[in-house]
Amino acid sequence: MSSNYKDIIYEVRDDAVQIIINRPEVMNAFRLQTLEEMIDALKRADEEKSVNAVVLSGAGDRAFCTGGDQKVHLSEDGLYGPRGTVGMPVEDMHSALRDLRKVSIAKVQGFAIGGGNVFATICDLTIASEKAQFGQVGPKVGSVDPGFGTAYLSRLVGEKKAREIWFLCRRYPAAEALQMGLINKVVPHEELDAEVASWCADINQMSPGAIAIAKRSFNADSENIRGIGFLGIQAVKGFYMSEESKEGVRAFNERRKPDFKKYS
């Protein structure tokens, strides 16, 4: 495991391991290197004995994470990259986050969109600023996140709401995300850091062994979703090679509306 990270920041402070996606210039969208570093950092955090929590956040004031970086989606660092079913090891990142023996907390100060919304969904707890917004964007750009991004989401917010989130790709303010059960708490923007630190301080007083067992128990009930995700991402790989999916990426990068019907 390496501590020489380029796309993330790794720190141990405020009663937690802090893993910060450090790409604010692209709204903390992730690329291959980002995921590789996050996987490494999560494994490293799992061995940190001084704390019971891991806080996942994004640098800057605008975004927690806005999903995959569409500018590299079809480049050698994207679809045709060296690792992961779809080039980027998204499924490995989800597994590393889910398998943490510690309590994972998403600290969301701005946009949690697409893959970023999935990260927040998978985290054990999500605390958000009142300025935060959540939502999916996949079908708008010819993409989808099977498994935890869909099936597990429906466990949190219900089938009808989960389908709405994916089929309409709307954004939901933090207050509405709280109401639907997607997140745990909303606080004024300036109080977000203090609130997360307070939760981490409380969690750090708990038994690490008891927390690890509780997490395994929670995860066991939905572990079949991991299999669904790995199967689904095989289908996504084939879809990403289609002109329909590529049209979504091209349109996003060209800042125009996609014409999916031309290729469907």
Results as ranks from 00 to 15, higher is better:
203 I>T: 07
88 M>D: 05
246 K>L: 02
123 C>M: 03
77 D>T: 01
92 D>N: 06
185 K>Y: 05
192 L>N: 14
71 K>A: 06
93 M>E: 08
172 Y>S: 07
262 K>R: 15
240 Y>N: 15
70 Q>N: 05
110 G>H: 03
68 G>H: 03
243 E>A: 13
120 A>L: 04
130 E>F: 00
97 L>R: 10
2 S>D: 15
122 I>H: 05
237 K>W: 08
1 M>Q: 12
139 P>H: 06
23 R>Y: 07
41 A>Q: 00
217 S>D: 08
39 I>T: 08
152 Y>I: 05
33 Q>A: 06
216 R>D: 09
20 I>D: 02
1 M>C: 13
166 W>T: 09
235 A>G: 14
204 N>K: 10
193 D>F: 00
2 S>N: 15
141 V>L: 09
106 A>S: 14
262 K>Y: 06
165 I>C: 06
30 F>Y: 03
31 R>K: 13
33 Q>W: 08
159 E>W: 09
119 F>R: 04
28 N>C: 14
70 Q>S: 02
90 V>H: 10
125 L>C: 08
112 A>S: 11
2 S>P: 11
132 A>C: 04
89 P>R: 10
192 L>F: 12
194 A>Y: 08
231 L>D: 14
63 A>W: 01
178 L>K: 15
93 M>C: 12
194 A>T: 12
31 R>D: 14
31 R>P: 03
264 S>H: 13
167 F>T: 14
105 I>P: 00
159 E>H: 12
248 G>E: 02
214 A>C: 07
170 R>Y: 11
128 A>Y: 04
149 G>K: 01
12 V>G: 06
174 A>L: 13
52 N>D: 07
115 G>C: 05
102 K>A: 00
119 F>E: 09
79 L>P: 01
174 A>E: 08
212 A>F: 09
242 S>D: 10
65 C>K: 03
80 Y>R: 07
115 G>K: 10
167 F>H: 12
39 I>R: 12
95 S>D: 14
98 R>Y: 07
224 N>T: 00
54 V>G: 00
31 R>H: 11
22 N>I: 00
129 S>M: 03
13 R>W: 05
41 A>C: 01
115 G>R: 09
216 R>S: 09
189 H>E: 15
21 I>Q: 03
109 Q>W: 01
28 N>F: 13
126 T>S: 12
184 N>D: 14
48 E>T: 12
146 P>V: 00
73 H>I: 06
4 N>G: 12
183 I>S: 09
89 P>E: 09
140 K>C: 04
201 A>H: 14
189 H>W: 07
83 R>G: 01
213 I>C: 06
152 Y>H: 15
149 G>Q: 02
120 A>I: 03
126 T>E: 04
116 G>Q: 11
97 L>E: 11
155 R>G: 08
198 S>C: 06
88 M>W: 04
258 P>K: 11
65 C>W: 02
249 V>N: 11
100 L>E: 10
145 D>P: 00
124 D>K: 04
190 E>I: 04
137 V>R: 13
140 K>E: 10
244 E>C: 12
105 I>E: 01
51 V>R: 02
156 L>E: 05
92 D>S: 03
165 I>P: 02
166 W>R: 15
22 N>M: 05
155 R>E: 15
249 V>W: 03
78 G>K: 07
23 R>S: 15
235 A>E: 10
14 D>E: 15
4 N>C: 12
236 V>Q: 15
60 G>D: 04
53 A>I: 03
38 M>S: 09
215 K>N: 15
227 G>M: 04
47 E>M: 11
121 T>E: 12
73 H>A: 14
